[in-house]
């Protein structure tokens, strides 16, 4: 389903809007309303964050959302139940740290697929770090999406691209998740370096919060991922987060000339 979505976008000359939301944030009921609203606003892919107690790759906004979700008792099982209830028409990618996946047991990928999840992305399992567990994720029913960082040498980019499924998630800048005033000036070069060795669609995330940033990235990449900005807006209200997604969609579509 991920692949189909990106093929359709490519055929239409459009860029993907990938929206991140932490499962169970601001609370379980509004979580579902938020996801449905994001789909309606034009999100092409929903990344569902699995709450974790020690999110070392996340900045303050997503940390706080993770804590709020845990306070509501939402863990990986809860996240899957919410996905099943939301009945979304767009592909869903789980965004998790490795430990909750390991704790959930080997059949968790099948259970996730049954709940309506299409892909999985693991923050702390880089390519080559653990062949056995990477094979578990890669050979299962979900598309195993891999990450590339601005520090990744091009040779390694090629290796990551070979192992990836669905799309490649390019981290735009050093650091943890969170909004940035400015995108790194060398981002187009980084995208080009990756593009040269990668046949998969490239989606760029970390630091993206505004429509004009989405538009700028859309000129080079196949899609943008917006996380902290949506989570922050959802702290205020679901409507605010949905409005932001709509504005990002418009910004991104402005790039599709």
């Amino acid at each position: 389903m991920l692949t189909d979505r990106f093929s359709a976008l490519r055929a239409g000359g459009r860029r993907a809007l990938v929206c991140y939301a932490t499962a169970g944030h601001p609370d379980p009921v509004r979580s579902i309303a938020l996801w449905q609203g994001l789909e309606e606003a034009g999100a092409d892919v929903l990344e569902v964050g699995v709450p974790f107690s020690d999110p070392m790759a996340d900045g303050p906004v997503i940390q706080a959302s993770s804590q709020a979700a845990l306070a509501h008792g939402v863990t990986l099982d809860g996240a899957l139940a919410l996905v099943a209830r939301a009945r979304l028409g767009i592909p869903v990618v789980l965004f998790s740290y490795l430990n909750p996946l390991l704790a959930a047991g080997p059949d968790v990928l099948r259970r996730a697929a049954d709940a309506g999840v299409h892909g999985v992305l693991v923050t702390d399992l880089p390519v080559g770090s653990d062949p056995e567990r990477e094979a578990w994720l890669g050979d299962g029913p979900l598309a195993f999406v891999r990450l590339v960082a601005p520090t990744t040498p091009q040779e390694r980019m090629a290796e990551i691209a070979r192992h990836g499924r669905g799309f490649v998630y390019l981290i735009s800048r050093l650091g943890v998740t969170g909004v940035s005033a400015q995108l790194p000036s060398d981002l187009p070069d980084t995208i080009a370096r990756l593009r040269a060795v990668c046949a998969l669609p490239i989606c760029v995330g970390f630091g993206v919060s505004r429509p004009e940033q989405a538009r700028a990235i859309g000129a080079h990449a196949d899609g943008v991922v917006v996380g902290s900005a949506i989570v922050r807006a959802a702290d205020a209200s679901v409507d605010e987060a949905v409005s932001l997604a709509r504005a990002l969609r418009a910004g991104l579509d402005g790039a599709d000339a």
Partner: peptide, 12 residues
């Protein structure tokens, strides 16, 4: 053991 880190840290 192992190396379970964000991709950004792998080159470091």
């Amino acid at each position: 053991g192992g190396r379970y880190v964000p991709e950004t840290l792998v080159p470091a």
